[in-house]
């Protein structure tokens, strides 16, 4: 990066660190922070959509839809989320391969589960083993995002169900009195009003989501935890930048990153709550009115 980095062994002190922290592998480490942010950016709306769908499903008049919504929202209450992460990644992977197997090679006669093996025809392998490294990484990342969305969708659904219940009953009765259908009342009255009740819960889910991002490591993604372990491990003099075991410092860096991230989120969410409570028939809204 810098001109003086030509010969690392001759460097000392601050210059050594400047070169060390800007070498090629470190840029991969910094990129992995972007991966975390990307995961959050993609997962948060997807999980919210899943949660909204599930919360609406629990209010459905069709029993199977309602049961599905109830089971989906109840499952995260008794089972640790890590179990879901480990479970869904394999299930999604095998599910996709199985579907493609049935479509691509219908004449295949061998059983797919042979003892401890899961064998689909070569054409159904996802992603194809010949495809470039980038495709493999993108596929794994997409699986991870989907897994996160499923688990956090259930969290969101729980919050949204509570929020839908919190909308004053009189509002819905008024909608009925105006002759709105169930569907109209849901979309025009319930949905616009529920967000202010949902916001405290959703902020909490956001915090949990941030704190769950290091679990990407368990799903086989080269994320910040992976790179922190990789870069922090001791380097002998064979390497350009030899150093002892610095994993402690790398993890300390990650800790500070997360502390800053959650703190900033907290402040932003507190402001948002104040903004949204404005003019609402809630305690916070009343407080804002009195203060004005």
């Amino acid at each position: 990066m810098f001109a003086f980095c030509e010969d690392p062994s001759a460097l000392e002190g601050a210059r050594w660190f400047a070169c060390y922290l800007t070498n090629g592998v470190h840029f991969k480490f910094y990129q992995s922070f972007l991966v975390v942010l990307l995961l959050l950016a993609v997962t948060a709306p997807t999980a919210l959509a899943f949660g909204f769908a599930a919360a609406s499903a629990t209010r459905s008049r069709i029993p199977p839809v309602r049961w599905f919504g109830n089971i989906y929202t109840a499952m995260v209450r008794g089972i640790p989320d890590i179990a879901f992460f480990l479970f869904f990644v394999i299930v999604l992977d095998q599910g996709i391969e199985y579907l493609r197997h049935n479509i691509v090679c219908p004449d295949w006669t061998d059983p797919i589960r042979q003892g401890a093996n899961f064998i689909v025809c070569p054409a159904a392998r996802t992603p194809q083993s010949s495809s470039p490294q980038f495709v493999h990484e993108a596929y794994n990342f997409a699986l991870a995002v989907f897994t996160y969305a499923i688990v956090f969708g259930a969290f969101c659904a729980n919050v949204l169900i509570g929020a839908m219940r919190a909308v004053p009953r009189a509002q819905m009765e008024t909608a009925e009195a105006y002759g709105m259908t169930r569907r109209q009342a849901f979309w025009r009255i319930l949905v616009p009003q529920m967000w202010v009740y949902a916001l405290p819960g959703l902020s909490n889910v956001w915090m949990i989501l941030i704190k769950a991002t290091p679990l990407l490591f368990l799903l086989g993604i080269e994320d910040i935890v992976y790179w922190a372990r990789e870069l922090g491990g001791s380097r002998t003099s064979q390497y350009a930048y030899p150093h002892p075991d610095w994993r402690l410092w790398y993890f300390l860096g990650l800790l500070v990153f997360y502390l800053a991230f959650t703190r900033v989120s907290e402040i932003v969410l507190a402001r948002l709550t104040r903004r949204l409570s404005h003019g609402q028939a809630t305690a916070a809204g009343e407080q804002a009115r009195r203060a004005a």
């Binding site: 769950a212 922190a228 993890f251 502390l259 703190r263």
Partner: peptide, 15 residues
């Protein structure tokens, strides 16, 4: 409360 438990485990182990 502000940092992930997962990172706390790693950090503690290394320490």
């Amino acid at each position: 409360r502000g940092s992930p438990l997962f990172i706390q485990f790693f950090l503690a182990y290394e320490a």
